[in-house]
Computed example of a mutant assay.
Amino acid sequence: MEPRTGKRADSGRPRPSPSSRLIVEACLALMDAEGADALTFRGIGAQLGADPTALYRHFRNQDDLLLAVADHLLEEGLEGFEPSDDWRQTLRGLFIRMHKVYLSHPRAAVLATVRITRRPAEMRMIELTLTALSDAGFPPEQAVRHYRALVNFLLARSCMDATYRTLDAHTRRGDESAWSGEYAAVPAETHPHIAAAAPYLASVDDDADFDFALDLMLDAIAARAPGKG
């Protein structure tokens, strides 16, 4: 069988049609550089040197392509991941990985975190999470409830952090300086607890904050687990 081909090159020979993975990787690179507006078949075709119509051989439309990009992000997080014998460590390692991947592609993450991909990487992510919760002793119905709480936390927090990273540098500096500026200057007479906490409000590291919040959730799940926590 002859390979599918795209637009003919200048030599007159047919140009090979890009693979679905190559298209997704090119789309992700464009979104990293230019944001959501780069998610067009015309722009991706230009990036690959291919006729935009060649992309329809792999993706029905732009939304289908976005779902593939979202699943590719999950695939990045899963690459090389091996579950632990400890269900809690499995979930902790898995969710920290995913958060880091989303923050490494913030412009894509803003769109990807609110979608359900229906694709292999997402299915593996769900299976790993439900397996860990089953190992903790939860029956299927309760495992699903805890799975949804964990994943919604991951996606909501990742979307918030990713959105913040898409702000321009000036805006981000202004927001970050507020903790050591306006909040540090709040009078103790009117806001005693803010004043007492002011030295610490400016020192919270975002990555450490995510890990801390995740541990709080895992602590709560372990306390509820029918098996050994």
Rank of each mutant, 00 (worst) to 15 (best):
K7I: 09
D10W: 14
S11F: 09
S11C: 12
G12V: 10
S19Y: 08
L22R: 06
V24I: 09
A26M: 07
C27P: 01
A29H: 04
L30M: 11
E34S: 15
A36F: 12
L48A: 06
A50G: 09
P52F: 08
T53L: 15
L55W: 04
L55F: 06
H58S: 08
R60P: 02
R60M: 12
D63Q: 15
D64K: 11
D64T: 10
V69P: 01
A70M: 03
A70S: 11
H72L: 01
G77W: 00
G77C: 02
L78I: 03
G80I: 02
E82W: 10
D85V: 07
D85M: 11
D86L: 03
R88K: 09
Q89R: 13
T90Q: 03
I96S: 08
M98W: 04
M98A: 09
H99N: 11
H99Y: 05
H99W: 07
V101L: 00
S104T: 05
V110K: 03
L111S: 05
A112I: 00
I116A: 15
I116M: 13
R118Q: 13
R118K: 13
R119T: 04
M123S: 15
E127F: 07
E127Q: 14
S134W: 02
V144S: 09
R145L: 15
R145D: 14
Y147D: 10
L150M: 10
N152I: 12
N152Y: 13
L154S: 04
R157F: 07
M160S: 15
A162N: 06
T163V: 06
R165N: 09
D168I: 10
A169S: 10
R172I: 08
G174S: 08
S177M: 10
A178Q: 10
E182R: 12
A184T: 05
A185P: 03
A188T: 07
A195N: 03
A198Q: 02
Y200H: 14
A202G: 08
A202R: 01
S203T: 13
V204M: 14
D206M: 13
D206N: 11
F210W: 01
A213D: 14
L216Y: 13
M217G: 11
D219I: 01
D219Y: 07
A220Q: 13
I221F: 09
A223E: 14
A225I: 02
P226C: 03
G227K: 04
G227C: 08
G227F: 03
